[in-house]
């Protein structure tokens, strides 16, 4: 029997779900308020975010906050489309969702190495 992708997909989905439960609302509120929080001195906000992104741990943190939610949400969207009876063959949809999450995570990692 062909090996299932499900254990790997579910691990990343689970990690992303836990991360989103623990910091999702706080993160969304932070970026929602960011233009106002930064209004006094936008350059200082840019510098502060630069300091976070300059540190290897900061890069890892940001990568986790992007990659894990990507795998979490695209896993749910993949299964949600199945639940909605989307008449599409399984493999291309899997490639699109899990391949898309992988590709977007890799792009994020590449950008993090640029700063």
């Amino acid at each position: 029997m062909r090996r299932s992708h499900e254990p790997v997909a579910w691990s990343l989905f689970g990690a992303g779900g836990m991360l989103l439960a623990f910091i999702g609302p706080g993160l969304v509120l932070t970026t929602a308020l960011l233009p106002w929080l930064a209004a006094d001195d936008p350059q200082a906000t840019h510098a502060a975010i630069g300091a976070l992104l300059a540190h290897p741990l900061g890069k890892l943190l940001v990568l986790a906050c992007v990659a894990l939610p990507l795998f979490h949400t695209l896993h749910r969207i993949y299964h949600g489309l199945h639940d909605l009876h989307l008449p599409a063959p399984r493999l291309p949809l899997q490639l699109l969702c899990y391949g898309g999450a992988t590709l977007l995570s890799a792009v994020t990692g590449w950008w993090l190495l640029q700063v």
Binding site: T31, V62, V66, P69, L70, G80, V107, T108
Partner: peptide
């Protein structure tokens, strides 16, 4: 519950766009 993934996916793309603009 499953549909919460949709806005959260778009939000993650917004975060990515911020990182891209930072670069």
């Amino acid at each position: 519950r499953e549909a919460t993934a949709l806005p959260l996916f778009l939000y993650t793309l917004l975060l990515m766009s911020g990182l891209f603009q930072f670069t």
